[in-house]
Design a binder for these strands. Structure first.
Length: 494
DNA sequence: AACCGGTTTGT
DNA sequence: CAAACCGGT
């Protein structure tokens, strides 16, 4: 009959905890909170302390500041507020739950090892207090535990993984922005965003980021519109050309959850594009397969939580990385290696917080194979400087290039940055954009190898010989293969 | 999601 | 003589 324990939470506030899902549209946790018929508290927690949660890099901190600012404004326009708190998420969340006598807590799932441990601990503690907790699928099209080989193992190869993932399609349609949201709880304390000091101070190095990006849900939607109308029609043919400007540039928006993969999947569906768009299926499939690589990376991280520190293929544990050549590493970071396309990429990264995907592979191959620098060191630099680095894609991609990863480039695949430049930046437009020393100084036949024409004043000679370092890398990797008795590879037992 | 050196093929 | 092809790394 009358069941006070079950009814008790109805009027108690609902807490929606936002993390990497800083959007109002297609946000299942927020939509559930809006419908719960109780006061709604929306919180974001800056957690730089919990074990296994990687502190944000500098570029990501800049982005987060803009994204939270945009989110707070969007909420305010709908009569809601964003509560900001900082500290270890378990403590902060449980304190807030007590403070507002919370009835229910909703969030969208995370998939990193440390993040899942935090969420599980909070869920247990809340349930012990008789608080209802519900989590939602919002940030991946395929929950990692639902995609298995016929033998029941996680996939180690991309193509069959994506095929299996696609068996679940079509994904659910995106949810609309909640039509209305109940008001928050009066008098709740919130940190001031500015006090988090997410923005660089002196020096203010973020000018190039401000010029390149608009963090926030509206910026993400604008990028998607531009992509669908201006870039997707040429995507398959030109996505590997860094000067072509056909990539979506949605990665940082996806990273912070300002747009969801569900919105993207449906955004490129024939129904959404309309019959007049005449965008070939090859373009759509190519774009979706990039979404697939994102899914695959999170799938890998789910099954190997220490993907950022441990080789996916254990035989790489025996690889004898030499002591780091510090001047060479700095030259790479600063874009002064004397290899034009490498320097162009590294300077694009430093300037804009982004690098074209093809160029990421080239600069990573150069660091790992030509300079023989441990992939973790490159991964850490990208983590600090990219606006889109996340806990899964960044390490998975570095391991892919190094050859230690899942479905990775074989160890003997050493990119030749001159040939890559000639193939994918044939007229040198990308190099000229980012390496001003080389702009206008050279006929295009030397733009990717200026030393062959006697060099260019003000631009360094190559710091290494590409042919000799290639041979050195092939010898080192071959040696590892001979030495390694353990050819097993892949996921830890879990 | 390569590269390289050597060989064969095609005009 | 350049492009295509091939096998090995």
């Amino acid at each position: 009959m009358f069941r006070p324990n079950k009814m008790a939470h109805i009027d108690k506030p609902t807490l929606v905890w936002l993390r990497d899902d800083l959007r109002l549209a297609d946000n299942p946790a927020l939509s559930a909170g809006a419908k719960a018929g109780a006061p709604l508290v929306v919180v974001y927690i800056l957690d730089a302390m919990s074990e296994g949660i990687r502190p944000l890099g500098g570029a990501a901190r800049w982005w987060l500041n803009g994204s939270l600012d945009a989110l707070a404004r969007n909420l305010a326009a709908r009569g809601q507020k964003l509560v900001l708190r900082h500290g270890p998420a378990v403590d902060v969340l449980l304190d807030l739950a007590t403070e507002i006598e919370v009835g229910r807590v909703f969030w969208n799932r995370r998939y990193g090892g440390g993040a899942r441990a935090v969420d599980a601990a909070i869920k247990t503690a809340l349930k012990d207090r008789d608080v209802a907790v519900e989590s939602f699928q919002a940030n991946l099209l395929c929950e990692p535990w639902t995609v298995r080989t016929q033998a029941g193992d996680p996939f180690r190869v991309y193509t069959p993984f994506w095929k299996a993932c696609r068996q679940h399609f079509p994904p659910r349609p995106p949810l609309p922005v909640p039509a209305s949201m109940p008001p928050s709880v009066d008098g709740l304390r919130s940190d001031a965003l500015a006090d988090w000091r997410l923005l660089p101070e002196k020096p203010d190095w973020a000018g190039g980021l401000r010029a390149s990006w608009t963090p926030g849900e509206a910026g993400a939607a604008a990028r998607l519109r531009t992509f669908l109308t201006e870039r997707l029609p040429d995507y398959a043919a030109h996505r590997d050309e860094p000067a072509a400007d056909v990539s979506s540039r949605l990665s940082p928006h996806l990273r912070f959850g300002e747009i969801s993969p569900f919105q993207l999947w449906h955004g490129v569906s024939p129904e959404a594009l309309g019959e007049t768009a005449k965008i070939g299926q090859a373009n759509i499939d190519k774009f979706l397969s990039e979404i697939g690589w994102r899914e695959f990376s999170w799938h890998l991280l789910f099954h190997q939580p220490d993907l950022a520190t441990r080789n996916f293929q254990p035989r790489f544990d025996a690889f004898p990385w030499p002591a780091v050549n510090q001047p060479a590493l700095v030259a790479w970071q600063q874009g002064r290696t004397g290899i034009p396309i490498v320097d162009a990429g590294m300077r694009e990264l430093w300037q804009t917080g982004f690098m074209h995907n093809r160029v990421r592979m080239i600069v990573a191959s150069f660091l790992v194979k030509n300079l023989l620098v441990d992939w973790r060191i490159g991964e850490a630099w990208f983590w600090d400087t990219l606006v889109d680095a996340d806990a899964a894609n960044n390490p998975a991609s570095w391991q892919w290039v190094a050859g230690s990863g899942a479905d990775a480039a074989p160890y003997f695949r050493v990119f030749n940055p001159v040939l890559q430049g000639e193939k994918f930046d044939a007229d040198g437009a990308y190099v000229r954009t980012h390496v001003p020393e080389l702009a206008g100084l050279l006929a295009k036949q030397w733009i990717h190898a200026p030393w062959k024409s006697g060099g260019v004043a003000g631009y360094p000679d190559p710091i290494v010989d590409l042919g000799a370092t290639r041979e050195r890398a092939l010898r080192a990797f071959a040696q590892m293969r001979e030495d390694g008795a353990d050819f097993s590879s892949g996921f830890s037992e879990d």
